[in-house]
Design a protein around this nucleic acid. Structure first.
Length: 268
DNA sequence: ACTCGTGTTAGCTG
DNA sequence: TCAGCTAACACGAG
């Protein structure tokens, strides 16, 4: 599920975990918590509090304070392909995450990969069937480009146009800009009518500005509508799918190492 | 039964 | 150095 819009929603849920005293942490999943050893994260954070819930691209982290009021290590949270944040109140009820809707995910405790129990009785959990999510202390954010939201046109052009990769590969490169995933890239390129395979060096300034405007719009709409899966072209990304604008059959290929669908007529 | 995938990373190759 | 490929992680969906 998670690309920038989903992660931003998750961040608002995670924010519900701030300001509460950490009683106990279950960090026994040594794959999700690598390279830490079981107990490392618990030792570092138990007795303290999470003070913020921040995000760049698809990476979230909480700043922390120790029991005696000093700054603690940051707690990094990445959802991977399908992780979800669950925060409960002292009564065990889920909080955050917008309008209440029944949780369709069957819950199985072995899929809770990391749990913070608060002194008030509530919890913060990373629920992740595929175990591709990640928790770590003081995550390295230096490899991330600027968040894909709120980039200036010139900054977007300069960063995107460097190098000679296919434009989609560039959009997916988190060190160029952070937050665009596979679905959002396909949606944006379709909206902008640009072939995902186009080398960035062949894009004109006009192309880049149009791409940027469409990325902004796709992000805004995905956030408003509840996720990247609400994009216009997303439901047509399958064998036999047709371009919702012109009706041409969508074409499939691999670009930037990822499954890619585009309209061969409009995206040249 | 078998392939694919909304993500990331390490390691390898040209 | 850069760019592209592969494997690994684990499981559901088609």
């Amino acid at each position: 599920m998670p690309e920038l819009p989903e992660v931003e929603n998750a961040r608002t849920v995670l924010a519900q975990a701030t300001g509460r005293v950490i009683a106990e942490i279950d960090d026994r999943d040594d794959w999700v918590c690598r390279p830490h050893r079981p107990g490392d994260i618990a030792t570092a954070l138990e007795g303290g509090t999470l003070t913020t819930a921040r995000r760049i691209g698809k990476t979230m982290w909480c700043d922390t304070r120790t029991a005696d009021g000093a700054d603690g290590p940051a707690l990094g949270v990445h959802l991977g392909m399908g992780g979800r944040i669950v925060v409960t109140d002292s009564g065990g009820e889920r909080i955050g995450g917008g309008p209440a809707r029944p949780d369709r995910q069957p819950r199985k405790t072995e899929w809770d990969r990391f749990t913070v129990a608060f002194a008030d009785g509530g919890e913060f959990r990373l629920f992740d069937k595929r175990r591709l999510g990640r928790i770590r202390l003081d995550p390295d954010l230096s490899g991330l480009g600027p968040d894909a939201e709120n980039m200036k046109p010139a900054e977007f052009r300069d960063r995107l146009a460097a190098g000679r990769s296919a434009v989609k590969a560039r959009l997916l490169d988190q060190s160029v800009l952070a937050g665009v995933g596979n679905l959002l890239a396909d949606e944006t390129l379709w909206q902008a009518r640009i072939d995902p395979r186009t080398p960035v060096r062949d894009l004109t300034r006009t192309d880049l500005d149009r791409l940027h405007r469409n990325l902004d719009r796709a992000l805004e709409r995905a956030i408003a509508n509840g996720g990247v899966h609400t994009g216009e072209v997303i439901e047509h990304r399958h064998p036999g799918g047709h371009c919702p604008r012109c009706g041409t059959e969508m074409v499939h290929g691999t670009v930037g190492g990822r499954s890619t669908w585009w309209c061969p007529k409009e995206q040249e």
